[in-house]
Design a protein around this nucleic acid. Structure first.
Lengths: 218, 218
DNA sequence: CTATAATGCAAGTAAACACTTATATTTGTC
DNA sequence: GACAAATATAAGTGTTTACTTGCATTATAG
């Protein structure tokens, strides 16, 4: 646990399994780790417990992973890949659509992704050392570029597009994530998506010439 | 660390110090814990380390706290009290003001509060078991009531005020918190506050009759 | 001054922790 | 079937963890 004890900071797997036998072992390790995370949280995640629950010897675990954080990193890698692909598809498939329609699609996809394994999602976002998580959590470069291109032709009256993108990403993530935990009824009824779409479209589509607030500083 | 080992789940102090001597001891413990949290993070926080850095015997620590989580809880209690009081004051002192002005005041206060000890703030929000944190982090009842009263007479075209309040609280917190870590220039220039005010005012002041999005479900 | 309560500390304990070594078993290849 | 590579595991290592016991010291009250 302590930073003292853990010298191996690599988050990469140590060795790839080459036979079916070891592939099952690695899968069992990952499943056991996810199970412990959602049941008891990150504080209860230990290498001995992972191996025990996976029905695998602790030494086998250390043959494929340098430590528990590498196991968690692998879980996050798999978890995030699907979501990023979905976002990329949505952006690519709607070149001529309006801001609101595309935003609604993106948000609906995100909400759906949160519904797949919300408990694991929650652990990732709430209990993990956030510095490392953010790198993975961020949009990858392709999605970012696509999003910027889309917003460049869809927004009006936004003074700093890069800051606006940060605001959109931050609020979207917060609403989706906390909503999955706290507003399940509003998700089921579609109200949460509606409200988030309103929030973002009105933020991004300001009337030209009617720029509210005192923006005379920066 | 593990949930197995810690049986005392009470987050309350065990005993109040009655003499100056022990009051200093308790303060030293709290300061040492905060120091470790901001320097090395929650994972490195152990009772033995706290006592060592505080220059206090480990047994003394256990006389006043049932465990490290109670120490953290006490830190959070102190940390949150000032902020809540500031928010309450702002709301109480501006009965006739407009939405944008009051919102700007509230946000500016929040940003300032995050600037006091941002590292500790960050640890609280990022590294601590969030379930327990949320209870404390939430607005207390007085602020909530005041805020609702204020919004009831300041918003237009908002279909569900309770949901809107949740949206405002969620986005405000996410922007302020992540901004303190990632957008320090935009905070210094005031841009972040500007953008947040725009986001919230446009969300809360929708033109009546022009309700965007398909709201035909709930 | 004395009795009593409050406080402080040295020195532990058992359990959990991350991680390794040495050895045995299984698998693919020729 | 023989042999080497891949895989699995029993049985540890030393360290760190949360937390306690027993006793000495200091402050307060009568």
């Amino acid at each position: 646990m302590s930073d003292r004890r853990r010298r191996k900071t690599s988050l990469l797997p140590r060795k790839r399994p080459r036979q079916d036998r070891s592939r099952f072992t690695v899968e069992a390790i990952l499943e056991a780790a996810a199970d412990i995370l959602v049941r008891d949280g990150y504080a209860a995640l230990t290498t001995n417990r992972i191996a025990e629950r996976a029905g695998v010897n602790i030494a086998s675990l250390y043959q494929y992973f340098p430590g528990k954080d590498a196991i968690v990193a692998e879980l996050r890698r798999r978890h995030g890949a699907a979501e990023r692909a979905a976002a990329r598809d949505t952006l690519a498939a709607s070149p001529g659509e309006g801001l609101e329609v595309t935003l609604r699609k993106l948000i609906a996809r995100g909400v759906a992704a949160h519904a797949v394994s919300p408990e694991l999602h929650r652990v990732f976002a709430e209990q993990l050392p956030a510095q490392r998580y953010r790198e993975i959590q961020r949009m990858d470069a392709a999605v970012f570029t696509e999003m910027r291109r889309f917003l460049e032709r869809s927004t009006t009256g936004v003074p700093d597009l890069e800051l606006a993108m940060w605001m959109v990403a931050t609020t979207t993530q917060a609403v989706m994530h906390n909503g999955a935990l706290e507003r399940q009824e509003d998700i089921a009824s579609g109200r949460l998506v509606d409200e988030l779409v309103v929030l973002l479209t009105r933020y991004l589509k300001r009337r030209p010439g009617r720029s509210p607030g005192r923006r005379s500083r920066g």
